[in-house]
Simulated assay, not measured.
Amino acid sequence: MRWMTLATLSFLGLFSGVAGAAERCEPVDHDGNRYIVCEVRAGQDDLRLWLTAPDGAIYGSFDRLNRTLADDGLRLGFAMNAGMYHSDRTPVGLYLDRAGQAGKLVTSAGPGNFGMLPNGVFCIGPEGFAVLETRRFADSPPVCDYATQSGPMLVIDGELHPRFLVDATSRYVRNGVGVSEDGSRAWFVISDRRVTFHEFGRMFRDGLGTPNALYFDGNISRLHAPGLRRSDWGLPLGPIVGTVVPIDEDHAGG
């Protein structure tokens, strides 16, 4: 039934009303809450992770990242924060991008949302995308061109995280990522209002039908989506995930 839901969304052209293949971002209503969902397709969209700028400083914002990309004739198609970070904005857990590895895989339980096991890793590999529970990732590491660890897992093999309570009162603007079973598609989601973990997890499991999904963060969650004329401001960011597209006249400057 979950995959019928996802197929129905695609059939109705949910992501057809935006400019450019790498800017499939649209509002979606689920269980009384509204979310922005950005779809990315393996082999079609150029999805990357970023942390450190060429001068060695952490990017920290969509605007600075966009200015750097412009030097190569590129801009962000969409972007969002991509994992938890320390006060100096370095990643809490594993982080891997073109510059190398900036953090180590953390397999032990710990404080806060990151340490609420099971947590997980989002992997961008040569064959597609994956969201894997951290200890499963450690036991059999996949090939990843980019990877970011965060937590908790929102959906694990089709089930919500066992610590999510339907009557929970903790609410934040939250964002995360879910991946299709075959790894060919990833959906990046941010809530428009404050939601509970249970509500957010159900969006991935029931609204999008993703068998596995990973929480990125809450409270500081931000989105850059020029197709929706949106680019959020706020505190400096750590890891950023997004697509790149060539600069064109309609969207120059992003």
Rank of each mutant, 00 (worst) to 15 (best):
T148I: 11
Q149T: 10
Q149H: 13
L154H: 05
L154W: 09
V155F: 06
D157Q: 05
G158L: 14
E159I: 08
L160C: 01
L160H: 02
L160W: 04
H161R: 10
H161N: 10
P162T: 15
P162R: 13
R163S: 11
R163T: 06
R163P: 10
F164M: 15
L165V: 02
D167S: 03
T169G: 07
T169E: 14
R171K: 14
R171L: 06
R171A: 00
Y172D: 15
V173Q: 11
R174D: 00
R174Q: 00
R174V: 00
G176T: 11
V177Y: 05
G178M: 06
G178N: 08
G178R: 05
S180N: 10
E181N: 08
E181M: 09
E181P: 09
D182G: 09
G183Y: 09
G183N: 10
S184T: 11
A186Q: 00
A186Y: 03
W187Q: 08
I190D: 06
I190L: 13
S191I: 04
S191E: 07
D192S: 12
R193Q: 14
R193V: 13
V195Y: 03
T196E: 13
F197N: 00
F197Q: 00
F197W: 00
H198E: 05
F200S: 03
G201I: 15
M203L: 14
D206R: 12
D206W: 06
D206E: 11
G207R: 04
G209R: 02
G209C: 05
T210H: 13
T210D: 15
P211G: 04
P211V: 09
N212M: 02
A213D: 11
L214V: 05
L214I: 04
Y215S: 06
G218V: 01
G218A: 06
G218Y: 01
N219I: 10
N219C: 11
N219A: 06
I220W: 01
I220H: 02
R222E: 12
P226N: 15
P226I: 14
L228M: 04
R229V: 10
R230F: 13
R230P: 10
S231G: 14
W233P: 04
W233Y: 08
W233F: 05
G234V: 10
G238Y: 12
G238I: 11
I240A: 03
I240E: 09
